[in-house]
Amino acid sequence: MGSLFSEVFLGALLFGAVAAAVPLLLAGLGEQISEKSGILNIGIEGMMIAGAYFGFLVAYSSGSLWLGFLGGALAGGIVASVMAILCVRLGLNQIVIGIGLTLGLEGLTALLHHVQFSRTYPRLPAADVLAIPLLSDIPVLGPALFRHHLIVYLAVALVFVMIYVYRRTQLGLNLQAAGDKPAALDVAGVDVVRTRTVAVLSTGALAGIGGAYLANIGAGIFVPFITNGAGFLGIVLAMLARGRPVWVLLGALLFGISLSLTTALQVAGINIPTDVIQMIPFLAVMIMLVAFGRRSSLPAALGIPYERGAR
């Protein structure tokens, strides 16, 4: 037990927390955009796994992680465009299509992986890290927080970009209006369907990048069902954050810490079943909800397709 608070343990814990938090952060921020605009995007798990598979495939065959992220964003975006056409343009049930896409892509990526690689799991070389000068020299914290792939810093920066978008831009206001009172947005001369389409496509791209990170940097390999509920966690994070990007970041870190706690405890030589540790963040959030159980403030038109002139 003496080694529990050693530098190695803390370092591994924090480094792992950041690494595990990034895909959740990207998924949560992405889901938040959709939910703001009134679309409950349950297909995000499918978008992530599509991004993970295709991102891995691109990175593996091109040797470039950045092309991999691009591929992931593209794959997530393509899945999202199906959702956009069916749920935003045609107004089909968002839960049926969302779960349908998730099931289908989990199956399809596993199937394609099986056909392509059979039972082998090729591995990508470890990603090169970007050490931030000075900050990365801080003992313990430095290597844990400031020696990551560039995409990690970009993901954190995205939190602040999103705050700016929501608060200061026309697009941000349009998104909010599309979720709260789509008819008013329509009267103001802004196309509700287009606004929501933009939102769903952004969700897909971000979820795809999150999936690609999970496979290419987090694991270094693609295995079927690799996302393992990360997309659903993104939905939970987005709903808990009540429209605020910073809360998505905090939530993602909380979940990230407990995900990495398992590995860190094993480093420290303590063997606890992973399932016990995995329960911690959910317990923490449930306790928070019970303690501060406030009404969740979700967009008024969440989950309701917009049809001009309908009452």
Binding site: L101, L103, G104, E106, G107, A110, L111, H114
Partner: peptide, 10 residues
């Protein structure tokens, strides 16, 4: 693979 069943159901 059984994963095809998922695709089919979807």
């Amino acid at each position: 693979p059984t994963t095809f069943t998922l695709v089919l159901i979807a």
